[in-house]
């Protein structure tokens, strides 16, 4: 959060000796920032680096499943995110904000939403877009309306719609032992949408399926996400309401017409886990009130199922979260707690 610092001159009593200790205390800068004025011992860097630690299980598993290309992809995105951040800091003439870790998260999250065969140059374009347009044009961390990583992903989706939906099987796939590297495969969602095939839920849980780097293994994301929830760095209401809505709404649709996938499939497929735990919970772009968090999660869940079942695209996590990001200021406004003493009309 960018803070304006002004000197608290008003309280200075003119008689005091400038070297007086009390005077020095008085001269402490007064920090003015936009609401919410919540007090916490957690600093932005601490939260951000914890999120990165929480992402590690998913990172490790994706390198295990997709091999070195996954490592290259993630390091490329993180490094280019850092460079873009430095460049924008320099242009705006502000302090370097790399240590707060937010650029690293953006790069890492973006990499995890990309298919392993995606070209690195295109990934750089997406990362730079995420940092420059997604974050700094809006005013930097804390002022962005949309989750920067998802915005970068959306830009790449619009730029390279074919490349971003061309997935390779994980290298440990049993079927692949006979086939050469780089066999393209559809994701479970794609298979379902266009071919009507279902995938093995067990493989989907562990991550042995085609898909983007960080979205294949549900278990690793649940571990990391659970860690975040325990540390209270993510509002538990958002993943619970998001996943719960997807499960419920998915179940209803499945009950109405069994040609739709069953709710467990919904939960485990695509980037839903990654989105629910790491993207929808982004503190900057999600509602701050508890009630708002519920609305946010339920709205995203409904949007997701509608996009998956009735839309032209197989996956809707990205758009469901981005759309809810867009209405977050409205949700905040309407779920604002009443002032003390403010009566109902």
């Amino acid at each position: 959060m960018e803070e304006k610092v002004i000197k608290n001159d008003v309280k200075v009593k003119p008689k005091k000796n400038p070297k007086d200790k009390l005077f020095k205390l008085d001269r402490q800068p007064l920090i003015i920032s936009s609401s919410p004025h919540l007090n916490t011992t957690d600093s932005v860097p601490k939260i951000m680096w914890t999120v990165i630690i929480a992402l590690l299980p998913a990172v490790v598993l994706s390198i295990y499943y997709f091999g070195l290309p996954a490592l290259w992809m993630m390091s490329t995105c993180v490094i280019s995110a850092g460079l873009a951040e430095c460049l924008m800091n320099k242009l705006k003439g502000e302090e370097f904000t790399i240590p707060d870790g937010s650029a690293v998260i953006t790069g890492l999250l973006l990499a995890m939403t990309l298919p392993p065969s995606f070209t690195l140059t295109s990934a750089i374009i997406g990362t730079v877009f995420a940092i420059v347009i997604g974050k700094h044009i809006f005013g930097g961390l804390g002022f962005n309306i949309f989750n920067p990583a998802l915005l970068g992903r959306a830009f790449l989706q619009a730029c390279f719609p074919v490349a971003i939906t061309t997935w390779t099987f994980p290298k440990t796939d049993v079927y692949l032992s006979k086939i050469v590297d780089g066999v393209t495969a559809a994701t479970p969602l794609g298979l379902f949408k266009f071919e009507g095939e279902t995938s093995d839920l067990f493989n989907m849980f562990w991550g042995n399926i085609g898909g983007s780097l960080g979205e294949t293994s549900a278990i690793s994301i649940i571990i990391g996400g659970g860690f975040l929830l325990i540390k209270k760095y993510a509002d538990w209401r958002i993943p619970v309401s998001y996943l719960g809505t997807v499960f419920l709404f998915g179940a209803i649709m499945w009950w109405i017409n069994p040609k739709y996938p069953d709710p467990t499939f919904h939960l485990l497929s695509g980037g839903l886990m990654l989105g629910a735990f790491f993207m929808a919970t982004d503190m900057v772009t999600s509602p701050i009130t508890p009630k708002g968090a519920w609305i946010f999660g339920i709205g995203a869940g409904i949007l997701l199922v509608v996009i998956r079942l009735f839309g032209g695209l197989p996956e809707g996590v990205m758009y469901s979260i981005l759309l809810m990001n867009a209405v977050t200021p409205l949700i905040n406004r309407y779920t604002r707690p009443k002032f003390f003493g403010e009566g109902s009309k």
Binding site: C159, F160, A163
Partner: peptide, 10 residues
């Protein structure tokens, strides 16, 4: 790799 989005309205 051409940036498809550039020739689209967005």
């Amino acid at each position: 790799n051409t940036w498809l989005v550039m020739i689209l309205p967005p």
